[in-house]
Amino acid sequence: MKSILLIVVVLLFLSCKNETRDTSNFTWLAGSWSRVEEPGENKTYEKWIPTMNGNYNGHGFTLHKNDTIFEEFLSIKPLSKFSKGKEYSWVLEVTGVNEKPTVFNIVDITVNSFTAVNLKNEFPTHINYSYNNDTLKALVSNDSLQIDFKFIKRD
């Protein structure tokens, strides 16, 4: 009887432990990036920083000469394991563009890319980041428009 009780206690303990998330899939994103092949006089930059709690925080902005003409704050963070009905384990949250944060479910993650989707957002509905040959690419799109961003790491 004691052994059954011990097994039940161990199983309960294991089921209550904090779920760990593998953040290694996002390490390629960390750093400061400059957009290349940008039309006109604008300069676009992104910076991604891993945080102590496993999130990745990003800051993107576009300058026209010395004036900031666009700015957004991004965060990749895990969903709670207690989020009922959610099959996604990570989200990309964008703030600074709309009045409220816009949340995209990360539906696909590989060792050097991820795709985030929010079909209720007017534009973009899809955001794809990928890293290949020292180049970071971001593709933002919906059914009728897509914009490609190509970045290189800056010192």
Results as ranks from 00 to 15, higher is better:
residue 120 K to L: 12
residue 112 N to E: 12
residue 61 F to L: 13
residue 43 K to W: 01
residue 112 N to S: 14
residue 122 E to P: 09
residue 102 T to I: 05
residue 105 N to G: 08
residue 85 G to F: 02
residue 104 F to G: 04
residue 53 N to L: 01
residue 104 F to L: 03
residue 86 K to A: 15
residue 117 V to T: 07
residue 87 E to R: 14
residue 116 A to V: 01
residue 68 T to M: 06
residue 50 P to D: 04
residue 42 N to R: 11
residue 57 N to V: 13
residue 77 K to C: 05
residue 69 I to P: 09
residue 108 D to W: 04
residue 48 W to T: 06
residue 46 E to L: 11
residue 48 W to M: 01
residue 88 Y to R: 10
residue 74 L to V: 01
residue 58 G to C: 02
residue 44 T to D: 00
residue 49 I to F: 05
residue 95 T to S: 10
residue 88 Y to D: 14
residue 112 N to C: 10
residue 82 F to T: 13
residue 113 S to E: 02
residue 47 K to E: 13
residue 96 G to A: 07
residue 60 G to V: 05
residue 43 K to R: 06
residue 77 K to I: 01
residue 72 E to C: 10
residue 90 W to T: 02
residue 63 L to S: 03
residue 98 N to I: 00
residue 89 S to W: 04
residue 81 K to G: 15
residue 64 H to A: 11
residue 102 T to A: 01
residue 62 T to E: 00
residue 62 T to S: 08
residue 69 I to Q: 03
residue 83 S to N: 15
residue 57 N to H: 13
residue 59 H to F: 11
residue 76 I to G: 09
residue 97 V to E: 04
residue 76 I to K: 01
residue 120 K to C: 08
residue 82 F to W: 14
residue 119 L to P: 13
residue 93 E to G: 04
residue 70 F to Q: 08
residue 86 K to Q: 12
residue 46 E to A: 08
residue 98 N to K: 12
residue 79 L to D: 06
residue 46 E to V: 14
residue 73 F to C: 12
residue 92 L to V: 07
residue 85 G to T: 00
residue 105 N to H: 13
